[in-house]
Amino acid sequence: MSGHSTWPEWVYIGVVVALLVWVGAESWNVERLIDHVPADAEVIKVTGQQWFWTFEHPDGTKEIGELHLQKGKPYKFEITSKDVIHSFNIPDYVVLQDAVPGRINIVWFVPKDTGEFPIQCREYCGLIHYNMRGTLYVEDTA
């Protein structure tokens, strides 16, 4: 048939398949964990538009360009856009989700450290995209 030993090739294929299965399982697991929104998360409605962010708290309070949250509390962002596609990003907390017109995308996180953190648009959205920034203020729970 092949005229040479093929077992090393099968070992190679086996190792590669096992590694791919492991990589897939790990990624799937982590994705599942970070997609699982806690039941007690507070909902913040996030709206992107050229070229600023608006945040609406559950009590109806709105903030533009800045967001005040409390340390140690889970927050669920419901993200949408009024015009073009933007992307809501808080780099320090690895929060990144597209803001798409006519669609609500979800991402959640718990701020663990107090301080000021940059918010930015991560999808090129027009002339002043570079300056579509905001600030996240994480405060100690009262």
């Binding site: 096992a18 299965v21 492991w22 399982a25 790990e26 990624s27 799937w28 697991n29 982590v30 599942r32 964990l33 970070i34 699982h36 806690p38 039941a39 007690d40 889970p74 320090d92 907390y93 690895v94 929060v95 996180f109 718990v110 663990k112």
Partner: peptide
């Protein structure tokens, strides 16, 4: 390899007051 991973995933539940840190999860991955 697959069975323990699936078991671990299915066991992940809601512990009140305990939240995962997505920074840790994502960077560790």
């Amino acid at each position: 390899l697959v069975i323990p991973t699936v078991q671990y995933v299915l066991a992940a539940g809601d512990a009140p007051g305990e939240y995962i840190d997505r920074r840790v999860e994502i960077w560790n991955l």
